[in-house]
Design a protein around this nucleic acid. Structure first.
Length: 737
DNA sequence: TAGATGCATAGG
DNA sequence: CTATGCATCTAG
């Protein structure tokens, strides 16, 4: 017996008898499984393996040096091999890379790749019918029509046949029971549409043409490279990167386009179809499981050529990906901050590097970090400085609220009112933008000064007059708005302070009673369907005045819109967010960019208390370069070493965390730290404002939500918690530069 | 991560 | 005695 064992253990035995398999649970290391006789697997093969009491889908991984093994008597065999293409080398290295970078167990990252379990099952065939037997004894008119439809001798799907004959499916089923028809299995699903690179090629402007040629050359050449398309709103970036997609398709490779929001996919799909004569496959949480499974399979076999998707599409197992486009690359929605945290824009670049293909980042307002990467020569920057079709960028002016304060309770300045009136008078559209949902951000009692606060968070409750509630925009808590003050009991003493979009709508109704008005806010009922309809109605000119929040800033062309008024341009600047200036710049640029897309005189108004703020000055002067230069400079001063003082490094407490070693290295590398404490696996820098001093923290914590709490507690213990310390958190240090 | 296990508490 | 909740452990 011992002899046999020895023989079995000897290195002479085939190395493929035991393979490492990564399983989709929170484990970092691959587990070893025995390969049954007659079964062959290779790295990437998708298998079913027993794990504890259950069975899970795993992937055969690559042998790794020093990989732990286990006594062969404890080895379990692979239970089944899936009939799916193996995961390629690139995506396996990508999983490894993401898991190390974000300190997430490798199994958890793999789980994102395997998130369409249905994709591994063969798609259920469609039941079709064919004429085989004699006509039934009772030949009703309905049955006759069915038989007439079948004279071509072909097989039909049950539903298709019923529709063709104008009868219900039960008539068809009845004929099956009679033996007149026989069921046959039809191949399920339609084959994926193949985009044609030259289908609907558009005439490009000189700027677009130059950028497009640069891009197509880059794609045709292959190899990793990052290109930043930096084009003003309305400059036709999409048409330019369509040419990159065409080049990838021509080269026989696959292309992926990432969008920050699924609300934008419908419009994109239409434009794509007009350009390529075929729709791309969609990948996001609103796509049905069946459609997702089909896309997953098609992408793995290479049958699907183009995918448009949300950040999770980055983890699809493309067979031969040749291009990723990240549209609106500056958008914060590319950050995933629950579960496995990652930044899809950054990981797109990583996937391109691992796969050896180009990545295109596109934006009218590039993020600071992408712009710096371009300046430093790491990315190639293509600039589109002007709008297509001779349209001019809107003329922006400030309405200085310090000089002429508005009457109490008013939010729309007379100048803005006049501009809107004039636009409507000319048959054009106007937009009033306020990035604040609800009626009023604060409700207080005039008698006793009581303020309504959220019981869970330390934030004020926002009045939503339309719904009659007070809501916390942080945690979602809602309560009915009472008539009397809960503190002093006074009746009708509660006042709404500050404007929200509902209140601006109320004022607009008074100022422009004749105008056809539409209010758009993300908390309005009706969902994406209604939103899509309403955006379409605006584009068709069915409204004169749109009053909206963030929603109206993105995508969608409103050709008749010529006036945009920003009710409170300073709004985003007040927060302690290190990116406040950048985000405000991006938002104001996008919103004012809604105006004048189709030519004509267009104007934008910023109501502000800080017309001299660098952000306002850059927007008003239409000088993007000025903003980027100033902000990069400021960012360097604020966030690049040397810091005034590193107050602490907080790291993970659990000895078993794989993050520990990395955390220790980090802590050791950045002296002098006051304290070390270990919390968990995701890394984030924290800036703490203490008076005028910014103290810099490096924190390792499970997730962003935990950081504030941990740190606040820790600061209390250090007697620093008093005196209104502001804590700023950002989840992704790499994004800081 | 998910399921199994062990222990404490609540309820009939 | 069972039901339920919570913390802890473990998987090849």
């Amino acid at each position: 017996m011992a002899q046999t064992d020895l023989l079995f253990d000897s290195p002479a035995a085939s190395p493929r008898d035991v393979v490492p398999v990564v399983v989709p649970v929170a484990l970092d290391h691959a587990y070893s499984y025995r390969v049954p006789r007659g079964v062959t697997v290779q790295p990437g093969t998708i298998v079913q393996v027993p794990l504890g009491t259950r069975e899970v889908t795993g992937v055969v991984w690559d042998d790794e040096p020093g990989g732990e093994t286990v006594g062969h008597n404890r080895l379990k065999p692979i239970a089944a091999v899936h009939d799916a293409p193996p995961l390629g080398e690139t995506i396996r290295r990508f999983v490894d890379w993401v898991s190390r970078y974000y300190m997430m167990p490798r199994g958890m990252v793999l789980r994102m790749v395997l998130r369409s379990p249905e994709a591994l099952e063969p798609e259920a065939p469609i039941r079709g019918v064919r004429l085989v037997g004699a006509p039934p004894e009772r030949l009703t008119p309905a049955r006759r029509r069915v038989l007439e439809a079948l004279v071509d001798g072909l097989a039909w799907s049950r539903l298709g046949l019923a529709a063709q004959a104008g009868v219900s499916v039960s008539v068809v089923d009845g004929l099956i029971d009679c033996g007149t028809l026989e069921t046959v299995e039809l191949r399920a699903g339609r084959p994926a549409d193949i985009p044609e690179p030259d289908y609907g090629r558009l005439a490009l402007t000189d700027d677009q043409q130059a950028a497009a040629e640069d891009l197509t050359a880059t794609v045709a050449e292959g190899g990793f490279k990052v290109v930043l398309i930096d084009g003003v709103t309305g400059s036709g970036k999409t048409e330019v990167y369509f040419e990159a997609i065409a080049a990838a398709v021509k080269a026989g490779r696959q292309a992926l386009v990432l969008l920050p929001e699924i609300a934008l996919t419908a419009e994109f799909t239409d434009r794509f179809a007009a350009r390529f004569g075929a729709k791309p496959e969609e990948w996001h949480s609103d796509v049905s499981a069946k459609a997702r499974a089909r896309t997953w399979r098609g992408v793995a076999t290479g049958e699907v050529r183009c995918v448009i998707g949300a950040r999770s599409a980055l983890f699809l197992p493309f067979r031969d990906l040749g291009l990723i486009v990240v549209d609106e690359e500056h958008d914060g929605a590319y950050k995933q901050d629950e579960g496995v945290v990652y930044h899809a824009r950054d990981m797109a670049v990583v996937r391109g590097r691992l796969g050896g293909f180009p990545v295109v980042l596109a934006s009218a307002t590039p993020s600071i970090e992408s712009r710096v990467n371009a300046d430093q020569g790491r990315y190639r920057r293509l600039v589109l400085p002007s709008r297509v079709g001779g349209a001019r960028l809107p003329e922006i002016s400030a309405i200085d609220l310090r000089q002429k304060t508005l009457p109490r309770g008013r939010a729309i300045a007379p100048r803005l009112q006049t501009a809107i009136d004039e636009a409507i008078g000319r048959g054009e559209q106007a937009l009033l933008f306020l990035n604040r949902r609800g009626y009023a951000p604060l409700t207080l009692c005039r008698s006793c000064g009581h303020r309504f606060e959220c019981p869970n968070c330390s934030t004020w409750l926002v009045e939503h007059r339309f719904r009659g509630v007070l809501a916390c925009h942080h945690c979602g808590h809602t309560e009915r708005r009472p008539d009397a003050c809960p503190s002093c009991g006074d009746l009708d003493s509660l006042t709404a302070c500050g404007p929200g979009v509902e209140r601006v709508a109320e004022e607009a109704a008074a100022l422009f009673p004749e105008a056809r008005r539409l209010v758009l806010s993300s908390d309005m009922p009706g969902g994406t369907k209604r939103l899509k309809d309403e955006l379409g109605a605006i584009a068709k000119g069915e409204f004169d005045l749109v009053i909206g929040t963030q929603l109206v800033a993105k995508g969608h062309n409103f050709p008749k819109m010529t006036v945009v008024g920003v009710v409170d341009a300073d709004l985003g600047l007040a927060h302690g967010d290190p990116r406040a200036a950048e985000k405000t710049f991006q938002l104001l640029q996008q919103v004012t960019g809604r105006a004048g897309r189709a030519g004509g005189e267009a104007r934008g108004f910023l109501q502000t208390h800080a017309p001299d703020h660098p952000v306002m000055k850059a927007i008003i002067a239409g000088d993007r370069e000025r903003f980027y230069t100033a902000e990069i400079d400021e960012r360097r001063r604020a966030f690049m070493p040397p810091f005034s003082r590193l107050a602490a490094v907080i790291v993970s407490a659990d000895e078993r965390e794989p993050a520990l070693a990395a955390a220790r290295d980090l802590a050791g590398a950045i002296p002098p730290a006051d304290a070390i404490r270990v919390l968990g696996p995701a890394e984030a820098p924290i800036a703490v404002m203490r008076g005028r001093h910014r103290l810099r923290f490096l924190v390792i914590a499970p997730r962003q939500a935990d950081l504030q709490g941990y740190l606040a507690q820790w600061l209390q213990g250090r007697r620093w918690g008093k005196g209104g310390i502001k804590i700023q958190v950002d989840i992704d240090p790499q994004s800081f530069l």
